[in-house]
Design a protein around this nucleic acid. Structure first.
Length: 585
RNA sequence: GGGGCCGUAGUUCAGUUUGGUUAGAAUGCCUGACUGUCGAUCAGGAGGUCGCGAGUUCGAGUCUCGUCGGCCCCGCCA
């Protein structure tokens, strides 16, 4: 076996005169009839090989046979490139290797797409030939970056007294939350493991076990539909600590973020991050993960709408709905079609209409202005600090629709108007989440998860008015994307039982599903809490990649399929029989 | 479950609005030339089930319906 002495991207002027061996793949080759140049590439980069017929005609002949992506090894001498032929665009551009021995490990068929940056290739093809896509510098660098990030995470937590614990992948299906991936048991026919949606209960058990500080970089599984930042299996940085308050979580995780950005991107992140109560976030941004890189905040105008003669607004207010709006600076220049497009955007989130008023030198103008008395018009202008040239946009509907539609419009318009620097990093914590929200039947369902601790002072509302309770939950948000979330957990059996009861999980079901956790609470559970970060998402944001698949070596496609190996797939009848399963399709 | 955009050479795309001769370009691939290139250059060549199926028509890449596939979004994702 020919062993390398250097990686292809590592040779520099200081290596001149050395005899070296390189292994890698044929990248570009340039045949000048006489001299042949070949770029040899590995994961570190590439170097230029020179085959000169006058120096070694056998080699030169052999080099003629080389084609794209042949896997080769060479030995040769590093020399300085002739004056004027240096390539300042590549790190190894000062030197070249005069080859005196060439070995072809494997020939290669012409790849289905060029192993090059400047060619956009359809993602289905890239996924099918992922091993070739990983040879391309873009994806390769993302994977190397991800590896360095994981290393930094491990170092950071190890240095802060955390221990890494591996938790089971074959686990128990639990109600609530996302759909589980199920794994049938051969030894217990008819029974199923579930793959963990997160190691939530295990890490709490680690705290009860007295491990005090736990972390893990761990795969989690959720059988839900895909998005550009969602995969059926994804990686979390999972953290749990005992005897702490939320402040300990905030400072620990801010420290991690600061370290990652500094070490990997050489960017200084200001800490601590601002904190934003949940209802402030909803009122000002319409969403619990605001993009704070720009203003254009929402303003409630329910009071003004109620006083107006605009029937739509009045009836919404009477029905207990909400009216809010945003002020688009310079938006008065929007054409009728542009406003129609915005209406369509709002409709995606259920808004049945989009009311608008243009602000001109002469005051407000639109087909609905006439329904607003002079005084009300003045109030509107003041509420939005509007000035001539602006555009006011209003949505009146159920609260959830108003928030969702305006939150979307706000970001949509800001992107169109280039209102923010895409390279900006606006971190913040969203805090004071409600403990519960209403589900479709109007029953309380956890906003976070059922182990989240209520605010101590709200505890008495658990039975009387659960929807009013705030929880000790927190999310970290970057540029409008949630990158992590967690909470202080319930550590008392009686409180946990009361929460289950509020959720409509009776004693028997609670015992069946979470009995092992409730039992553990009997034996001296420490106060504890934690957080989990989406690792893939974090890397995606750090690298400014447009989707999560660009930072995962072997991702699933939009339909949650592994294109490369064609999974999921049918299995043998024999395998099913052994598991006591029969297909019913 | 629903909505949007897309599907043409190995790859990336044009052509579809307004149906009309043999479906083009770039790049890659093959052959040849070339001793300093680095996304080499020059000359020549091969390469197509216009996703698939049905329909309208004298005639369909282009129009209609269906279907399959890709991405994005809503729902969903404690």
């Amino acid at each position: 076996m020919m062993k390398r002495t250097h990686y292809c991207g590592d040779l520099r002027a200081k290596n001149i005169g050395e005899s070296v061996s390189l292994t890698g793949w044929v990248w570009h080759w340039r045949d000048h009839g006489g001299v042949i140049f070949i770029d040899i590439r590995d994961r570190s980069g590439h170097s230029q090989l020179v085959f000169d017929p006058q120096e070694n005609s056998d080699n030169h002949k052999q080099a003629n046979e080389l084609r794209s992506e042949f896997c080769i090894g060479i030995t040769g001498k590093v020399r300085r490139r002739p004056e004027g032929t240096e390539n300042p665009n590549m790190p190894t551009g000062e030197v070249e290797i005069v080859v005196d021995h060439l070995m072809i490990f494997s020939e290669a068929e012409t790849p289905p797409f060029p192993i090059d940056e400047h060619v956009e290739v359809g993602e289905d093809v890239r996924l099918k030939y992922r091993y070739l896509d990983l040879r391309r510098p873009g994806l390769r660098n993302a994977i190397l970056f991800r590896s360095r990030a994981a290393q930094l995470v491990r170092n950071y937590f190890s240095n802060h007294g955390f221990i890494e614990v591996e938790t089971p992948v074959l686990s128990k299906s639990t109600p609530e939350g996302a759909r589980d991936f199920l794994v049938p048991s051969r030894i217990s026919p008819g029974d199923f493991f579930a793959l963990p949606q997160s190691p939530q209960i295990y890490k709490q058990l680690c705290m009860i076990a007295g491990l005090d500080r736990y972390f893990q970089i761990v795969k989690c599984f959720r059988d839900e539909d895909q998005r550009k930042d969602r995969q059926p299996e994804f990686t979390q940085i999972d953290v749990e600590m005992s005897f702490i308050t939320p402040e300990d979580i905030y400072s620990t995780m801010e420290g991690l973020i600061k370290t990652l950005w500094k070490e990997l991107l050489d960017v200084e992140i200001e800490i601590p991050f601002p904190r934003l109560p949940y209802w402030d976030a909803m009122e000002r941004y319409g969403i619990d993960r605001p993009d704070a890189r720009f203003e254009m905040e929402l303003r409630d105008i329910g009071d003004i709408g109620a006083e107006s003669d605009f029937k739509v607004f009045r009836s919404i207010v009477e029905k207990g709905g909400k009216i809010s709006g945003i002020c688009v600076k310079g938006g008065a220049a929007f054409s009728r079609k542009e406003i129609d497009d915005l209406t369509s955007e709002a409709a995606i989130f259920g808004a049945k209409g989009l009311a608008w008023m243009k602000v001109t030198d002469k005051g407000l103008e639109s087909n609905i202005v006439k329904f607003f008395a002079e005084g009300l018009q003045q109030k509107l202008l003041e509420r939005f600090n509007a000035e001539a040239g602006d555009l006011l946009l209003f949505v009146a509907d159920e609260k959830e629709i108003v928030y969702a539609a305006l939150a979307h419009l706000r970001v949509h318009i800001a992107e169109r108007q280039n209102l923010f620097d895409p390279n900006d990093n606006k971190f913040l914590w969203v805090v004071d989440f409600p403990m519960f929200e209403k589900d479709d039947e109007g029953n309380p369902t956890p906003l976070h998860h059922p182990f989240t601790s209520p605010c101590t002072e709200d505890l008495d509302l658990l039975e009387s008015d659960p929807l009013k309770i705030r929880s000790l939950a927190y999310d970290m948000v970057l540029n409008g994307i949630e990158i992590g979330g967690g909470s202080i957990r319930i550590h008392r059996r009686d409180v946990q039982s009361r929460v289950f009861k509020t959720l409509g999980i009776d004693e028997q079901k609670a015992q069946e599903k979470f009995g092992f956790l409730l039992d553990a609470f009997r034996y001296g559970a420490p106060p504890h809490g934690g957080i989990a970060f989406g690792f893939d998402r974090l890397i995606m944001l750090m690298l400014r990649e447009p989707n999560i698949r660009e930072v995962i070596a072997f991702p699933k496609n939009q339909r949650a399929q592994a294109v490369l190996e064609s999974a999921p797939s049918r299995v043998d009848e024999e395998q099913l029989r052994e598991l006591g399963l029969r297909l019913r399709l």
